[in-house]
Amino acid sequence: MDELIADLPQYVQAIWDTLYIVVISLVASGVVGLVLGVALATTRSGGLLANRAVYTVLNVVVNIVRPIPFIIFVTAIDPLTILVVGTTIGPTAGAFALSVAAAFAVSRIVEQSLVGVEPGVLEAARAAGAGPLRIIATVLIPEGLGPLVLGYTFLFVGIVDMTAQVGAIGGGGLGDFAITYGAQRYNWPIVYLTVATIIVLVQVGQFAGNALARRALRR
């Protein structure tokens, strides 16, 4: 118990680090993944901006990156991380690496959500005289918002999971805390406390996401 109290500052810091990494990665990979996903969904054949060459390139690139185990991918882009952040240690470096990796996953989530949008609705927008970019912004994304929000919620949970891995290779956060202060010192209460914290974090995120999705779907 004494040890637990002694480690409290580190624990609080770890929570903040995790939240910091999660928020930065969620926003950054969310935006980049949205752009990539929209590009995938609209350039495929029959899409608003159907373009076989662009689609093939994007598709292949995403397919190459996605199956690489996350922890290896993060290590592999270390030179890029140093170029952008200046270091590979710490939450900012972790958030950057995570954002890059997650963006590719997000692009698939976005693509799936948007491909599910009724083509007839897009045709109605075309018939009303709207151009492709306007249709993407005012019809495609709003119509796919329900599944998109659920997808982003799924992503949030995935990112929390990934922060633990980033933590293990120098990113800080709850994963790092659980291993350094818990597992490596055979201090199991610390491990369980961390697990409980992560569960709470995930639950809160999932509930919030579900509530938002319900609003978007009006169900």
């Binding site: 009724e118 007839g120 609705v121 045709e123 109605a124 927008a125 075309r126 018939a127 009303a128 005289g129 019809v139 709003p142 119509e143 918002l145 978007a216």
Partner: peptide
């Protein structure tokens, strides 16, 4: 521009649910 001057309706209505 011209499509604006031509209305169209559909079998499945194709209304924007959003």
């Amino acid at each position: 521009e011209l499509r604006g001057g031509i209305g169209m309706i559909f079998q499945q209505f194709n209304l924007f649910r959003s």
